[in-house]
């Protein structure tokens, strides 16, 4: 297991290097000079040239890349061209906002998706099964951005149950400690702000959760159906164990592996889906941070932002891979 972990970690290195190279070239292929963008259209040629030199953008690409890579190894993600603040300093609040949103979405997706899948398999061909699977099918086909707008229209504008957008009430700002507001408000013991944070989280996280929830429900159902046909499940039933115990203890434990794969993959996809959700709900997350940076040709922010999201994606997949062995003793890594 240990040697497998090391081996897997080593395979991540060339992928990360390749990714950094792809991002580096992609960003530089974006038309327009960042110096010109920063100084505006009325800037003199000399001023643009001076700033281009100051930013190191007149150096050969390999020098820029090596400098960038060297910086990365030291944890230096560069400075935002727009704000002048170090990206490593600036990025965390945005990353935390996306993390909080994605975790809330995954929590909803797993709790509802897994249970809906289990109940559908348990009562196969019942009305619950049909309704849940039709909903799952619709859920998989749902464009997040449309669902988000529908939620805003129904639950925020018409029913006024939840706020339309944002992460906090601007009249009652949250004092950030970790920038994960659910945790921050709990740490401060501020119940009002805690409830407010949850209220702001509901609509975007439900929108973001819909597709993974549907996929998890379908996967859990098919995986459970397969396991529930096994001999040992029949034996457990014959021994007089209650159906609840058989389903939730014996079947689920063996059916969860493919579900776990899907959960891992979906967690990565959530990070991508978050960009759309963040746009609709004006959620100040990493997706919007990168998206806005593209408009300003803010190279360091785009580069580091995409790289960090992709790194998280890779590491989630790695963790899921390693978790298999912990859950399923049949899997042995050599």
């Amino acid at each position: 297991m240990f040697s497998y972990t090391i081996k897997r970690l080593l395979t991540v290195i060339p992928v990360l290097l390749g990714m950094s190279l792809v991002v580096f070239f992609m960003i530089r292929a974006i038309p327009g000079n960042p110096a010109q963008v920063i100084l505006g259209q009325k800037a003199t040629k000399e001023a643009v040239e001076a700033l281009t030199h100051k930013l190191g953008l007149d150096q050969p690409w390999y020098v820029q890349y090596i400098k960038y890579l060297g910086g990365l190894l030291k944890g230096d993600l560069g400075e935002s061209l727009r704000t002048g603040v170090a990206v490593s300093q600036e990025i965390w609040p945005y990353l935390a906002a996306t993390l909080e949103l994605s975790l809330a979405a995954m929590f909803i997706a797993v709790v509802i998706g897994v249970n809906a899948g289990i109940i559908s398999a348990w009562f196969q061909n019942s009305w619950f099964d049909y309704v849940a699977m039709v909903l799952a099918l619709v859920g998989v086909s749902m464009p997040i951005f449309w669902l988000g707008l529908m939620e805003q229209w129904i639950f925020a504008i018409n029913l006024d149950w939840f706020p339309t957008s944002g992460r906090e009430d601007v009249r009652n700002p949250i004092e950030a400690i970790t920038h994960l507001y659910v945790i921050d408000t709990l740490m401060q013991g501020n119940t009002d702000q805690f409830v407010q944070t949850l209220q702001h989280l509901v609509l975007p996280s439900v929108a973001l959760a819909t597709i993974p929830m549907a996929i998890i429900a379908r996967m859990t159902r098919s995986s459970m159906l397969e396991v529930m046909k096994s001999d040992y499940i029949r034996t457990a039933r014959a021994k007089g164990l209650s159906m609840f115990w058989v389903v939730y203890k014996h079947s689920l434990k063996n059916a969860i592996i493919p579900v776990l794969t899907v959960i891992g993959l979906q967690m990565g996809l959530l990070l991508g889906g978050a960009i759309l959700t963040e746009t609709i709900f004006s959620w100040p997350g990493i997706g919007r941070y990168i998206y806005e940076a593209i408009g300003y040709r803010d190279y360091p922010v785009i580069q580091s932002g995409i790289l960090i999201v992709a790194m998280i994606f890779i590491f989630i997949n790695l963790i899921v891979d390693l978790l298999y062995a912990a859950i399923d003793p049949r899997i042995k890594y050599n």
Partner: peptide, 12 residues
Amino acid sequence: MLAFPSILLAIG
């Protein structure tokens, strides 16, 4: 290519 969230790569 698969290491990037697809929409992010598409935006890029």
